[in-house]
């Protein structure tokens, strides 16, 4: 219909990833694959990251994006996808956590 801008090309992470790819950039895509408790972003949400650490989208309310971006640098280097898990009670490898008390699983992969 008249006003339909179906997707917002300035905010939609998957459109941004495609645009970055067309610009010749290497891009990592992070996806929320599982949530428990009060996770701020639903399953399927994306954060996309380029090699300079620019990112768009979100996988949490901002609590773990920094850690995901850091991990994305390794994924871009190696090309190997990885599954990250964040949670407030999680005492394993991750220092960052979700203050809301939820837990999330985030898959990080390279585009191409």
């Amino acid at each position: 219909m008249m006003h339909v801008a179906n997707l917002d090309e300035n905010r939609d992470p998957l459109l941004i990833a495609e645009a970055w790819m067309k610009d010749g950039k290497d891009v990592a895509v992070a996806t929320v694959m599982e949530t428990w408790g009060s996770a701020p972003r639903p399953v399927g949400s994306h954060l996309v990251i380029d090699t300079e650490g620019n990112f768009e989208g979100s996988v949490s309310g901002g609590c773990v994006e920094g850690a995901v971006v850091a991990e994305a640098m390794d994924v871009l280097d190696s090309g190997k996808a990885t599954m990250l898990e964040f949670g407030v009670a999680d005492e394993t490898a991750w220092e960052v956590g979700l203050s809301c008390g939820g837990r999330i699983k985030v898959y990080v992969e390279r585009l191409g």
Binding site: N6, L7, L15, A17, E18, M21, V29, E109, R110, G112
Partner: peptide, 15 residues
């Protein structure tokens, strides 16, 4: 993610 998958997915979503 396969770049072709991304392009196809975005095309479907935009349509």
């Amino acid at each position: 993610m396969d770049p072709h998958s991304l392009k196809k997915l975005n095309a479907e979503r935009e349509a």
